[in-house]
Amino acid sequence: MIRACLIVLALLATTIMAQGTYAHGEAHQDHDDHVVEADGVRATHAWANATTGSTALVYVELENISESAVTLTGAETELAASAQLVGLENTGGELVYTVIPQMPIAAGSKMVLSPNGLAIRLEGLTAPLVHGEHFHIEIALGDVHLDTAVEIESATATQHSHAGHQH
């Protein structure tokens, strides 16, 4: 019974993911918008879901192409009162986002912030996030600060519209 349920849901999930990759073929703008690099750390495809609420989650792919480890310590944006790194945690059956004060990224490794995992949580949004627009966020990795544009995807998107694209 549960197996049947889960299989159906798994099939649904596959379909939705397939739709997601398909969507990327449509737009093909300037790729430079989606990649920011500073002091050996690269941020790619920052995005968030559209919302009219007061909180939002920002997802981004971070890549440490330097020789030494860096530590993701937080973020800042003019659009929100606070921005913190959070991770989804299962606490006795409740799936909740818990604040992660810092997150090491080893030399030469990648850290993907994506739905139902890690994210930068914005609280106290001062304006709604409108699909198709973008805003700026400053990601702090110790002394390194990356200023990247966050694409606002639809309220139900599960990935950046350019996800899967090699830059």
């Binding site: 798994a10 999930a13 299962n90 799936l95 992660i100 997150m103 850290m111 139902n116 995992g117």
Partner: peptide
């Protein structure tokens, strides 16, 4: 999360059951 990133490799797959469930719950 660091371990998950570390073991997302060509030889291994690493995942949080909770995250997979959250995706399913989203659906």
């Amino acid at each position: 999360y660091a371990l998950r990133a570390q073991f997302q490799t060509a030889e291994t797959m690493a995942f949080f059951p909770g995250a997979v469930l959250a995706s399913l719950h989203g659906l």
